[in-house]
Design a binder for these strands. Structure first.
Lengths: 127, 127
DNA sequence: TAGGTGTGTATATTATATATATACACCTAT
DNA sequence: ATAGGTGTATATATATAATATACACACCTA
């Protein structure tokens, strides 16, 4: 399971796990119906407490991404793609919004802004 | 003093104050040498504790944005514009980076991305 | 120069959120 | 039945956010 935790980021561990699992589900890396690593397994792998992974899984279930079967495991639910896409788009726009705020403080022009965005995008798609 | 606090954001109050004051200093709304509202005044205005405003001011002083004179008040320090600009640019790029991550999850193309960015930018500069 | 009123400071306290250890209950295969 | 996997519940420790209250310093004015 490719999950990377940062202690210094200030973001709670359970949120980091939650977000990364969510991304994997949206991207299809974790397929519909597939079983997630057990809470214990993941906790041991990440060297954290069982309770912390449980917390992450609880949030994922609350948001409709996974389904829990007591005594068996947690499974990726069929997802409402329209809803998921809309939510992710909202987050995306929020980040663009913040970027523009910062750009204004530095007198960065729209052209410079889109240039930087383009570089970041292409850098990411080279790999 | 135009400071807006959100209880629901999850961001600590002192950080919200800190960030907004920082932005005002960078933008020049709060000019070099100018006195900030006293901790008590701001606390009363925002209906929060004196300690919370103090915490915000402490962080600003730590980061070199203001200077405290006991018994007198807090004042905007002359700032190293190159450093400030560089830091803000970093934050800006970080947001663009996150935006691209989200875009990838939704299969949003570079063109769509720059279009949305442009709309947000222009919307902001209309006012 | 005494005192009032402004300023920032320090200490102790409360509430909330994060992360934990440990013991419990459920499911399935042997 | 029971061993060994699964998720669950309770009580606890720790860190952080926010607070109330009392203190100390600076300036102005009577």
């Amino acid at each position: 399971m490719n999950i990377i935790l940062s202690n210094s980021s200030g973001v709670p561990i359970y949120e980091q796990i939650e977000q990364q699992l969510k991304d994997m589900i949206i991207a299809g890396t974790l397929a519909e119906g597939e079983m997630l690593p057990s809470m214990r397994f993941l906790a041991k792998e990440l060297r954290i407490s069982l309770i912390t992974t449980k917390r992450a899984y609880e949030e994922l279930e609350r948001d409709g991404f996974i389904e829990t079967r007591v005594g068996i495991g947690c499974f990726v639910k069929p997802k409402n793609m329209d809803m998921v896409r809309e939510q992710t788009m909202c987050q995306m726009e929020e980040h663009l919004n913040e970027a523009v705020s910062k750009a204004d403080l530095c007198d960065v022009s729209l052209k410079e802004l889109t240039d930087i965005l383009t570089i970041i995008y292409e850098e990411r798609h080279k790999k």
